[in-house]
Every structure is written in C-alpha cells, then in structure tokens.
Design a protein around this nucleic acid. Sequence first.
DNA 1: CAAATATACAACCGGATGGTTGTACGTTAT
DNA 2: ATAACGTACAACCATCCGGTTGTATATTTG
Lengths: 135, 135
Amino acid sequence: MGDDATLPLVDDEVDRIFRALADATRRDIVRRTLTEEITVSALAAAYEMSFAAVQKHVSVLESAGLVNKNRHGRERLVRGNPDTLRKAQLLLDQYEELWRGRIDRLDALLTGEPAGDPTGDLAGGPPADPAPGSP
Amino acid sequence: MGDDATLPLVDDEVDRIFRALADATRRDIVRRTLTEEITVSALAAAYEMSFAAVQKHVSVLESAGLVNKNRHGRERLVRGNPDTLRKAQLLLDQYEELWRGRIDRLDALLTGEPAGDPTGDLAGGPPADPAPGSP
DNA sequence: CAAATATACAACCGGATGGTTGTACGTTAT
DNA sequence: ATAACGTACAACCATCCGGTTGTATATTTG
C-alpha cells in the first residue's frame, strides 16, 4: 500500500542506489548506521572532511533510500535502511541467477512488475531504446 | 606477478564496481553479456547512442572487472564476469549480516585481509581517516 | 534573553562523466 | 589491392559530483 515508486522509475531508483554505494565514505556511513542511529555531527567527526560534505553524503544516501533521517530535538539521527540494501542485493542475485542460466520469474518480484514483458526478457531491458528493426 | 590488487586498494575497486553498475545502459550490457558473448557493434546496435558511447560503457565495465573482452578476428566479444558481480554481492550480504547483528568474520574472507583490524571493525572502516582522538 | 549547538542550504570550483564527432588502424571480403 | 567493416582513440562539450566556505535557521542551554 504505501509504496508508489515500484512501477515505472525502477531504473532511476537503482541508479541512485548503486551510485550512492560507489563511494567509500558513503558505504562507511551505511555500514555504521545499520547497527546504530548516529547524528550527522557524530558522523562528520569520523571523517576528514567538512560537516557540509558529510551532510551531502548523507543526503545522497537518503535520496537513494539507503538511510533515513529521524529528528530528535535539534539533531538528526541517521539510520541505515536494510530494505533498500536488500533491493540491490536482489538485483545482483538476479544477475547471478541469470548467469547460471535459470532466470525463473523472480524478476517480477524484484521489479514489482506483474509479468510485464511478453518477450521473456529480464527486468529493465534496454533503458532507452528496445531494438531498432534495421537502421 | 599475477594479482596485486587484493591488499590495499579494495575501496577503489569496489568504487569502480558500484559506479559501473550505477547506469542503466551498463547494467543492461552486463545482463546481456552474462548469458552470451556479444560484439561491441551488436551491443551498440541495441542502444540509441553512438558506437563510441557504448564503447566507453564497455570500457567502464571492463575496468571495473564486470566484463571481459576477447578478440575474435576483427571483433571484440564482450562477456560478463560473474566473479566481480559476486564480489559486490558479498559486500551487500555482509551489510545485511551486519544489520542482523552478527558479523562473524566473513569480512576477512571478503577483503582478503588476514585479521587486519584489531578493533573488530568491519572491512574498510573509514576510508580516509580512522578516528581523530579529539581535535 | 543570549549564546552555543546542530543542521540546512546556497554559491562556488576543479575534476570526473556521459555524450558527441572525427580520424586512424587492423581485419575481412570482393 | 581496394573497399567495407569493427574497433580504438582523441578532442570537445555540457553536466554532474565531491569538496569547500559562508550564511541562515531552529533548538538547547546558561
């Protein structure tokens, strides 16, 4: 019920997730906040960069859905979100399955699409253009 | 002689992997080449961008270790590399484990580090600066 | 209230990215 | 040998990214 971001913009969402994970500082933030809620200040103190920089990293993680920020007084408690992590996990698992030659239909589960592809293709397909008949 | 990229520069390698995966076109290339070898031209024909652009995407994937290029006459056959994919998978699995509260020691397996951290910290730790005692 | 703290946000900058076009080179085919 | 094909690579451009500093706002604390 609550989720409305599962139908058309999967690609963009996945882009953000992986891009957010493509930075050592951000991975470290995820790592930490998965086990405990930490304020942005506390996080910032752990890295050799400005507070604003860490703030930006948290923001990137947040807009990717990898962390949530809950306010507690004047502080913002950052908490890792395992659900989003699991989404990336599923995608990679899917690639693994695909490689093994058995795709099944778990891609439908992954993308939330109810058997959208009549081609039997995997979730996503070509991002922009499916296949020009003949140029 | 063989591999020298397993000890100190893990972070950078992971960066490249996730960054490479943070693009829908590149994910699609990985997806395709996991099940069959395809030439760069054939790949390029599938997307609405120039040949050179696709070439660059393949290059990014290759330098991340996500695909290999084998030459066959004048063509280059692109083949997905499930090993690298599995590396990313392991990292995410590790986060999942961490979230569940049981870290075990599989991080040593992941990073190849023989119990490098006396702190019991997870693989990687803060990328640049561990923890300033108190500035 | 005032001062200190924690955060938010805008502006700016150098470098990386993703795309283009053009050219050169090796390989097949005629 | 020449032409066509597949690829590589350089140059260029707009945009994004990761970092900085500076300023503003809300919340505690004295």
